[in-house]
Design a protein around this nucleic acid. Structure first.
Lengths: 348, 348
DNA sequence: TTGAAAGCGCTAACAG
DNA sequence: CTGTTAGCGCTTTCAA
């Protein structure tokens, strides 16, 4: 890039001191004594010339670039994944670091190239992220490096993980319903997401369902039904419509995502059922449209920002070696208007 | 980061050649002749030792880090802004570059720090981005540097801009309505976004309205009304409800954003008006929920990915100096089900 | 207290 | 065709 940059040598010369002295004052070290006078002269010269350190040159000696990388499968597809980037970035910036971003699109070869690209640029550490919580196997280039796993788990890979606390989120959803007095007619739409592509369900689905059922049982309630399906808006619409067509009259719906709730609202409206008077709805994610819906959707929020922040925080912590623990970030409840006590007279 | 990296000197030694020879073959240059034998030996040694170049060290001599920066005001707030990052990143990667990302949150001091951070790390160029199209004044640190303005304009700042073609988008919206046979009862909801915070409207609003009115007039139609308001879902709901309450019976709505349309759908449904049979709706953005709505929303898409891609492409182009032109990226129409010919019998 | 000098990993004249 | 040498901008012994 253009713009002649002024070097430390020039600052030293202008201040009439040696490069060594300039280096010491400019890097703000105190272990070697520099006279106040020399110090002042260096600082003045630096300010005067608009001196800025060349981080790359410094890294050549110090082995630290004050730069971290964030590699993920997809940033764009999931709206609000931008929040994790923002969380990571702000935490990095707070400690004088900058963030490389790279997205692999799920392609291993691309992943490998991007990780190499970061390593070639001497990043101090890398955050390896997935856009929905799952088990991953990080590329071999990352073994033995300083890594934090974001929104993913890799048993056998020695690094800490930061994931949302989906188990507790399931309990939270149950609690919302229980507190409103719901004990039956509760359906889980989307369920574990046990569909052909993911026959054993997905991590979030499994944990949420476990927490949900456990807490429901503890409150003397139970699920009237679990509908396994994908987690899009169309799926919510289709499955709830089907349920209704079958003659089932749910009193409450626990939807896998806000998108599923979106579809559920449509299906309910179509047959003249009102939220929350006829049926209560609660889900997970807290996407932006959750508050635009009428009534606003009560949902358990994915803590995107906090996930990114914590991951960066951990990776930049002074700990020389990171413990391979899994950090579960709480998922806060957003109370809006979609949950109410069950109507006195049941429908259907 | 841990992991002893092997240096070029080691490769040279293993191959039994001088560093110079190794450097030439490893950087893939052909202007100096190297014997095939030496070449092979170097390549073999490099592969064998798992050699990777130290980009930072190389940059010290070449002045090029193969790294570009993207500074923006907000990435996270606007869902799908992630697409611009993805576009920029993929274009960068295709040319062997990596991307720094930084978000200022609109704070000039933070902006200055982040830009310095990038410059200190010797980025080759920076993309200065805004999350909604507007006039900006880039920080002084960027003057004289290789810069591309993304989704913003800065008259007097010598750099190319890449923005969506909102003017043509306005015409596109008009055309959709005209082709369906609409000539009156057309209301623009949101308008220029001439609200207290932006009394002169916003760039996108002004351009769209201009294109819209011009094309409508050309087709023998005209706007029955323009409602100036903010561009959120609540605004759409409120303004359309008010319109209806006033006894106006729109035949078609041109909404400032898909969010406005979202609110408009709600207001319409509330009074029993159907889309598109009673009123047609067209808007701008193409957010994900546009296709979830019933009926699907016909909208003119913001070309996020392409914006990011073009900006990176320009900045990495071989042109030694960038011409300060403004590049208007087409906004493609997404036809879904929200526009139909006006009903034979007008309502109201 | 300060300075001279070496060296981080790599490239580029310039010889040979 | 290949090696020697200097040096990019900075830090860091080591000596003064």
């Amino acid at each position: 890039m253009s713009g002649r940059r002024v070097t430390m040598a020039q600052v030293a010369q202008a201040a009439g001191v040696s490069p060594t002295t300039a280096s010491f004052v400019l890097s703000g070290r105190t272990d070697m004594r520099i006279s106040a006078a020399a110090r002042e002269r260096v600082l003045a010269a630096a300010a005067d010339l608009g001196y800025r350190p060349n981080v790359a040159a410094r890294a050549l000696r110090t082995k630290s670039t004050q730069t971290i990388g964030l590699v993920s499968d997809t940033v764009a597809t999931t709206p609000y994944a931008g929040e994790v980037i923002r969380g990571a970035m702000e935490a990095a910036h707070a400690r004088g670091n900058l963030l490389f971003i790279a997205e692999t699109g799920g392609d291993r070869a691309v992943e490998s190239e991007l990780v190499h690209g970061m390593l070639d640029r001497q990043v101090d550490a890398v955050i390896y992220a997935a856009m929905y919580t799952r088990y991953v196997t990080p590329p071999k280039e990352l073994y033995g490096r300083r890594v934090v796993l974001l929104n993913c788990l890799a048993p056998g890979f020695d690094a800490p993980s930061v994931i949302p606390d989906e188990l507790e989120a399931g309990r939270t959803a149950a609690r919302v319903l229980l507190e409103a007095g719901h004990t039956d007619g509760i359906y889980a739409i989307g369920g574990h997401q046990a569909i052909p592509a993911t026959p054993d369900g997905v991590f979030a689905g499994n944990e949420r369902m476990r927490g949900l059922q456990e807490a429901l049982r503890g409150g003397g309630a139970r699920l009237a039904g679990v509908v396994e399906s994908d987690w899009g808006a169309e799926d919510g619409y289709r499955e709830v419509s089907a349920l209704l067509r079958d003659g089932r009259r749910p009193r409450a719906l626990v939807c896998g995502t806000d998108r599923v709730s979106f579809g559920a609202y449509q299906a309910l409206a179509e047959v003249g059922l009102g939220v929350p008077d006829d049926v209560s709805v609660v889900s997970f994610d807290d996407q932006d449209f959750a508050s635009w819906l009428h009534p606003g959707l009560t949902t358990v929020a994915l803590p995107h920002y906090e996930l990114g922040r914590l991951a960066a925080e951990l990776i930049l912590s002074p700990e020389p070696v990171l413990e391979a623990a899994v950090h579960r970030v709480p998922m806060p409840l957003r109370v809006r208007g979609s949950v109410a006590p069950p109507a006195a007279t049941p429908h259907g």
